[in-house]
Amino acid sequence: MSALETQAGATVPAPRAAPAGPAGPARLAVRSHPVSTRRVLLSEWVKFRSLRSTAWTLLAAVVLMIGIGWLAGWGSNDSWAELSPQEQATFSPVDITLAGYYLAQLAVSVLGVLLVTGEYATGMVRATFAAVPRRLPVLWAKAALFAGVTFTLMLLAALLSFVGGQQLLGEHSATLGEAGSVRGIVGVACYLTVVGVLAVALGFLIRSTAGGVATMCGLLLVLPTLGLLLPSSWQEHVLPYLPSNAGAAFFSAAPSADSLSATAGAAVLGGWLLVTGVAAAVTLTRRDV
C-alpha cells in the first residue's frame, strides 16, 4: 500500500479497496435510528464541544463578567469618598458587581451568531441539513443547547461576580439575602441567555457572521445610545422597549426612572425573542440552503 504525503504533513495510507460485490462477504449492517430532536440536540453538543473557539469565547464571557464585577466592587469602595452624596444615595451594590454583563453580552452574542453562521460560511450547513432535512430541529437544538450552556455559565459567573464583588465593596456591600440580590444574579443570567438565543436566531436569519454580529451590537449597544438623540417626549416610548433596557428592567436593583416594571421588561424581552425566533424558523424552512 503506498503512502501519500499530505498538506497536513501526515502520512495517509491509501484508501482500502472498494466494498466487495455480491460475491464478497455480506456487508455489516449499520445500526441507525430515526432522526429526533433529542438526537439532533446530542449532535449539536458534539459540534459545540469540538470547536476550540467555543471554549475561548465562553471563557471570555465568564472572565469579563467576573473581572469587571470585582474591579467595579474594588473601585467603588476605593473611591467612595469621591462620590457625590447623590451618587452615594442611589448606589446599588448589586448592580455594580454585575456590571460585567455589559461586555459579557458581546461575547455571548458573537458565539451565538457564530454557532450558526460558522456552518454557513464553511458549507457544513449542507451536511447538517442533509442529515436533518426537516431543518427546524436544528434551530431548536442549537437554541436550546446554547441557552442551557449560557444560563449555567452566566449564573455561576454572576454569582461569583456578586460574592467576590461584595467582599471588595467592604462596608458598602449587600448580602445575598437582601432584596434584589438573587433577582439581580438570576436576572442577569436570564438576560444573557435571551441575548444568546436571540443571536442564534439572528444567525439563521442573516447567515453571515459579520452581519449577525453587527446587528447584535447595533441592537444591544448602538440603538440605546442613538435613542438618546430622540426628542425626550419620544424617548420614553422607544428606549424602554429596546432589549437591553427591557432586560435591565428585570435584573437591575436600581432601575432608571423611565424603566418598565420587571414583569413588563421580561415580557418585552420575550417578545423580541418570539418575533426573531419565528422569523428565523419561517425563513429557515422556506429558503434554499
Binding site: 445500526r31 446530542l42 449532535s43 458534539v46 459540534k47 458549507g123 442529515a131
Partner: peptide
C-alpha cells in the same frame, strides 16, 4: 451525498465532523 467538496467546518476534526452527523441518526 457528496455535494461540494467542502461541506465541512474547517475548525473541526474529521472524527468530530463525522461523529456529529452520525449522532443525528444514533450511529
Amino acid at each position: 451525498a457528496l455535494l461540494e467538496a467542502r461541506a465541512i467546518h474547517t475548525s473541526r476534526t474529521a472524527y468530530h465532523h463525522l461523529l456529529a452527523l452520525a449522532t443525528t441518526h444514533g450511529i
